[in-house]
Amino acid sequence: MSGHTDMVLVDENGMRIDGRTEEQHRPIKIEAGVLSNADGSAYVEIGKNKVLAAVYGPRECHPRHLQNPTKAIVQCKYNMQAFSVSDRKRPGPDRRSIEISKIISEALERVVLTELYPRASIDVYIEILQANAGTRCAGLTAASVALADAGIPMRDIVPAIAAGKADGHVLLDLNKEEDNYGQADVPIAIMPSTDEIVLLQMDGNMTREEFDHAIELAVNACHEVHDLQVDALKRRYSKPAQEGSE
């Protein structure tokens, strides 16, 4: 949000540098069941973001002291691969990825029926293969598909997307340039059945009006992302059925 550029991010016709309108998200591709060892997995592309998510569990909780005798815990680890960003990222967790892991774990705990598995852990691993603004949303979107793919009981499949502000315009799903040189970023995730918010962050500068508009854009887009998540999961099982009828 802090950077400054002379680049025009939104032109006089409301067009953005990648040819999108203010209310359009980048192309999204979702695939479920992409890894063989993990109990559930998903691959998500949102624009130039490429993200893998894998789920193991419910399984015995390690370290033991984290066990909860009444419910399972959801432990998410978000990791950016060294080559996922323009400057090589030093391997290992930093403060940013630890924070993202925490809020994603918490968002997922809201929907997973954790009380069914006391003392257990449901482990979610998010690997960012390529980053281009919006990786936490892409990661959470992938993680919820992976959880459903693992057969984990949950209330809803959580979609996530960001809205923000650049050149004074409220925009959906900021790209790298808009994120770097814009004025605000609001990633959110919802439970589509109730529109309750399970993840929310904001940084930058927005008026109440702008914020309300951003939330409206993001919530609407979350429902579109959700349709793609559902479609990816159902596609996984329509394929074998076709083979079966050969």
């Binding site: 893998l52 894998a54 399984r59 990791n79 391997p91």
Partner: peptide, 15 residues
């Protein structure tokens, strides 16, 4: 050259 055996890859790999 660096390599990581991330926990995504196998249930016995740890972060």
């Amino acid at each position: 050259t660096g390599a990581e055996l991330i926990p995504m890859a196998h249930p016995t790999f740890e972060s």
